[in-house]
């Protein structure tokens, strides 16, 4: 899947940002297999960018295109279909159903498009060391456990683009590396584009492109 951004800038940012940023106000095009690392210190609009790309917010000027189609013209149903089959996301604030168990949270996503069998959830949970917490309520899990659940959730669907917003902020280095390995394995199988926004340059992530926001 091809992702293009053209002259993008949040409406709440000054025009000067365009001159200092490698993303804002620029024309960028990413395609299958690209591993894009966006380095963004706090306050540079990292979460805004990810939200814009997932159409969770539309407070920007410029345009975002998926396979040449402007995202602003996608209908609500088309957006649902895009999120179900083409674009996956790992959000910084995680967003789990707190009253459901981790396994139920993962099943809710898997059933939307059963790309993987249920056994794969358990395998991935084992890889990331959260298999013993699968039956715990999400609200009773630590941030680290919740973050790993969110990573697994993002990998349960088919996708051409994976958006990640500080996906390892609550993980230690060893666990983060396990997660990166799993993500790379899953994206390689799909030949997907990964857009990874992080505060600093990610270690252990073999980025093909590096941009400063």
């Amino acid at each position: 899947m091809k992702l293009e951004i053209k002259n993008l800038l949040p409406v709440y940012f000054e025009e000067e940002r365009k001159s200092t940023s490698e993303i804002w106000g620029k024309e960028r095009s990413f395609s299958n297999g690209d591993l894009v690392n966006i380095v963004a210190p706090s306050g540079t609009g990292k979460t805004s960018l990810i939200h814009f790309l997932y159409k969770m917010r539309e407070s920007y000027s410029g345009s975002i295109l998926y396979d040449g189609q402007p995202l602003s013209q996608f209908s609500k149903e088309a957006i649902a279909s895009l999120r179900k089959d083409h674009v996956s996301i790992i959000l910084q604030d995680m967003r789990l159903f707190e009253e459901q168990t981790i396994l139920e949270n993962l099943e809710i996503k898997r059933q939307l498009h059963p790309y993987h069998p249920q056994e794969r959830i358990i395998e991935m949970a084992k890889r990331l060391g959260v298999d013993h917490r699968l039956n715990a309520l999400a609200k009773n899990c630590s941030y680290g456990e919740q973050q790993r659940a969110v990573i697994i959730r993002a990998l349960l669907q088919p996708f051409g683009v994976l958006l990640m917003d500080e996906p390892f902020s609550h993980l230690d280095h060893a666990n983060a590396q396990k997660a990166i390995d799993l993500i790379l394995e899953e994206t390689a199988g799909r030949k997907a584009l990964v857009l990874f926004a992080e505060l600093e340059k990610a270690t252990g992530f073999p980025a093909t492109h590096l941009y400063h926001l």
Partner: peptide
């Protein structure tokens, strides 16, 4: 959250 996950409205 369901809509964010990709459930159709």
């Amino acid at each position: 959250l369901l809509l964010t996950l990709g459930y159709s409205p």
